[in-house]
Every structure is written in C-alpha cells, then in structure tokens.
Lab assay of single mutants.
Amino acid sequence: FSITQFVRNLGLEHLMDIFEREQITLRVLVEMGHKELKEIGINAYGHREKLIKGVERLI
C-alpha cells in the first residue's frame, strides 16, 4: 500500500506533486496534522481533513 494509492483512494491525486516534492511517505503522513499539511502547501481545510481522517482509518 503506497502513498500514491492512498491519495488516489481519497480522490486527492492532484496533491501527489506536493507529496513527491516533499518526499512524504505514509509513515510521515501519519505523523502530520493540519499545521504540517498546511506548511507543505495543502491549503484547503477539506483536503487536510480528508487526509487526516483517512490516516486514522489506516492505523
């Protein structure tokens, strides 16, 4: 299971460039909250919320 699959499953594949540029893996994403996601350029609250909720389902 990769970050690419995870992001695609959430319908947020347009954010993949950010994850690749910042070298974010699923392991790193698990540790990130709204503040960190915003810092790397994910400005939409809804997108950040989707990512965080998606990660919570993985754990």
Rank of each mutant, 00 (worst) to 15 (best):
F1D: 11
F1W: 12
F1T: 12
S2I: 08
S2T: 15
S2V: 08
I3S: 01
I3E: 01
I3L: 14
I3W: 05
I3K: 00
I3Y: 03
T4R: 15
T4L: 15
T4W: 12
T4I: 12
T4Y: 14
Q5C: 12
Q5T: 12
Q5V: 11
Q5N: 10
Q5F: 07
Q5K: 10
F6V: 05
F6W: 07
F6S: 02
F6Y: 05
V7K: 01
V7E: 00
V7H: 00
V7I: 13
V7A: 06
V7N: 00
V7W: 03
V7D: 00
R8Y: 14
R8D: 05
N9A: 14
N9G: 13
N9Q: 14
N9F: 10
N9E: 15
N9P: 04
N9L: 13
L10S: 03
L10H: 03
L10D: 00
L10G: 02
L10C: 06
G11K: 08
G11R: 07
G11V: 02
G11P: 00
L12D: 00
L12H: 01
E13M: 13
E13L: 12
E13Q: 10
E13F: 10
E13C: 12
E13R: 07
H14G: 08
H14Q: 14
H14V: 12
L15C: 05
L15D: 00
L15E: 01
L15T: 02
L15K: 00
M16V: 12
M16G: 08
D17W: 14
D17I: 13
D17F: 15
D17N: 11
I18H: 06
I18S: 03
I18N: 04
I18T: 06
I18W: 04
I18F: 06
I18A: 04
F19Y: 01
F19I: 07
F19E: 00
E20Q: 13
E20S: 10
E20R: 11
E20P: 02
R21H: 07
R21Q: 09
R21K: 12
R21S: 07
R21C: 06
R21G: 05
E22D: 06
E22H: 15
E22P: 03
E22V: 03
E22S: 09
Q23V: 06
Q23F: 07
Q23L: 07
Q23I: 05
I24Y: 04
I24E: 00
I24H: 02
I24D: 02
I24C: 03
I24G: 01
T25W: 04
T25A: 05
L26C: 08
L26N: 00
L26T: 04
L26D: 02
L26W: 14
L26H: 04
L26K: 02
R27D: 07
R27V: 09
R27K: 13
R27Y: 08
R27Q: 13
R27P: 11
R27C: 15
R27T: 11
V28K: 15
V28F: 08
V28I: 14
V28S: 13
V28Q: 15
V28L: 13
L29R: 02
L29K: 02
L29W: 05
V30T: 13
V30G: 10
V30P: 06
V30S: 14
V30A: 15
E31T: 15
E31G: 15
E31A: 13
E31N: 15
E31L: 13
E31C: 14
M32D: 00
M32T: 01
M32P: 00
M32I: 04
M32E: 01
M32N: 02
G33E: 02
G33M: 02
G33Q: 05
G33I: 02
G33V: 03
G33P: 02
G33N: 08
H34R: 04
H34K: 02
K35I: 06
K35T: 09
K35L: 07
E36Y: 02
E36N: 04
E36L: 01
E36A: 05
L37H: 01
L37F: 08
L37C: 01
L37V: 03
L37K: 01
L37G: 00
K38R: 09
K38Q: 12
K38I: 11
K38E: 14
K38M: 12
K38Y: 10
K38G: 07
E39K: 12
E39Y: 07
E39P: 00
E39F: 08
E39H: 09
I40E: 00
I40Y: 04
I40A: 06
I40T: 03
G41E: 03
G41C: 04
G41R: 03
G41I: 04
G41H: 04
I42L: 04
I42P: 02
I42S: 02
I42T: 01
I42A: 00
N43F: 10
N43C: 13
N43Y: 12
N43E: 15
N43R: 12
A44N: 15
A44Q: 15
A44G: 11
A44Y: 14
Y45G: 05
Y45W: 13
Y45F: 14
Y45K: 12
Y45E: 09
Y45V: 10
G46K: 15
G46I: 15
G46W: 15
H47D: 15
H47K: 05
H47A: 15
R48I: 08
R48M: 06
R48Q: 04
E49F: 07
E49N: 09
E49D: 12
E49R: 10
E49P: 02
K50N: 06
K50H: 07
L51I: 15
L51T: 01
L51R: 00
L51D: 01
L51C: 05
L51G: 01
L51A: 02
I52G: 00
I52D: 00
I52Y: 03
I52F: 02
I52C: 06
I52H: 00
K53H: 08
K53F: 06
K53L: 10
K53Q: 11
G54P: 00
G54H: 06
G54N: 07
G54E: 09
G54V: 06
V55W: 06
V55Y: 08
V55I: 15
V55Q: 01
E56V: 09
E56A: 13
E56I: 11
E56P: 04
R57N: 15
R57H: 12
R57Q: 13
R57M: 14
R57F: 11
R57P: 04
R57G: 09
L58F: 13
L58P: 02
L58V: 07
L58M: 11
L58N: 03
L58W: 13
I59F: 13
I59T: 11
I59S: 09
I59E: 07
I59R: 08
